[in-house]
Computed example of a mutant assay.
Amino acid sequence: MYHFLIMLTIASTVGLQAWRTLFNNFAVETAGMEGSHIGMLQSVREIPGFLALLAVYILLLIKEYRLSALSIIFLGLGVAMTGLFPTYEGLIITTLIMSFGFHYYETTNQSLVLQYFDKKTSPHVFGKQRSIAAAANIGIGIFIFFISPLLNYTRIYLIIGVLVFAAGIWGFFQNPSDKHIIPQRKRMILRKKYLLFYFLTFMAGARRQIFVAFAVFLMVKKFNFSIREITLLFVLNNLINFFLSPLIGKGIIRFGEKKILTLEYASLIFIFSGYALVHSRLLVAALYILDHVFFNFSIAIRTYFQKIGDPKDIAPSMAAGFTINHIAAVALPCVGGLLWMVDYRIPFIAGACLSCISLAAVQKI
């Protein structure tokens, strides 16, 4: 199961990163999209994450590891088709296919790790996956950098999509299952004793959206970072995470989820406040790197659930958690964008306040 999930995680990372790297340029230069179209497409991309709960009912029909592989097949199909339909309607359809594949793989991956690896091993596995994903991000970035002058968007999307699709086909015919694993409940589960897990998951989603929607925008809009500088920061982030992510997993095992999450949210208070207050390009770049590092601490929320949850509830609870995490993805970018128009610092001050609330909540662990 470990090697099965590592292979599919590489495929998932390569597919999503290639799609994201090329998408804005492709949408503008080839498909002729405007800002309003891009905004709607990004909202559409989050819909499958919001519908992750439906994965529980798909498990009535197929085994969970097969759904993981099938998700990678859909991800590859969506990426491969992206360049073939350069219209607004076409991009909505291919984005949905790609996004369903990515989000359902993420849901099943989290669930399978918690089912197949014990409480002392799962943090290490999550950390290793983050490390491998960082390496894959760097690899696909270098590949696109060198191949983009030689091939058009359609062919690049097709090549990468077919490779991801092939990885999914490979996975579909593997059988990494263990008959001794505890069977999962095939229905929606919401329990009072998991309220803290649900709350922390929701807050992590809100924090992620502030980071994704506004951190890079701040660096470009206020500090005039060029695309080369943003790319350099991206590579640096992934290099750091390649080495650091396994250490985060070891830290969770050694110190426990409460201490790790306390460190994350205490640090985020200063990071979000820094975004709102600093006027130095060097400092905001440092905050961005630190923000990226602490983002990986969120795996402690999943391993916390593993310690408190009924082993039969893992699959439905990971699906519910993924949906809860994406509630913020629907509302926050729109609300934050309106607040930005009033004062760019407001979304970041809000992020610091959310971090204070999360810091208080993790003390209940």
Rank of each mutant, 00 (worst) to 15 (best):
H3A: 10
A135I: 15
F270R: 01
I314A: 06
F214V: 04
R185G: 01
N296I: 03
T95Q: 09
P347I: 10
L59S: 07
H103G: 07
Y288Q: 04
P333N: 09
T94M: 07
F117I: 03
F322T: 12
F117T: 07
L236Y: 13
F348E: 02
S317A: 12
G171S: 06
F243I: 09
N241A: 13
S68G: 00
K312S: 14
R45H: 11
L268K: 05
K258N: 13
N175Y: 14
F255K: 12
I138M: 07
V79S: 06
I227G: 05
I349G: 04
L70V: 09
I248K: 01
R185L: 12
V293C: 00
L218N: 00
E264M: 14
S177M: 06
G321E: 00
A135S: 14
N175K: 15
I252L: 03
F74I: 07
H103V: 10
D310T: 14
R207A: 15
L239D: 02
L53A: 05
N296P: 03
A328C: 02
I38W: 00
F126H: 07
A31I: 09
P86E: 11
G49E: 05
A27C: 03
Y194P: 00
Q115Y: 00
Y157G: 07
F117S: 02
Q306M: 12
L91W: 03
T201L: 05
T108D: 01
A18P: 07
G249A: 04
Y116D: 03
K128H: 12
V44M: 09
A11Y: 01
W340S: 07
P333Y: 08
I47D: 02
L232D: 14
L196K: 01
L151Q: 08
L163E: 06
R20M: 10
L233N: 05
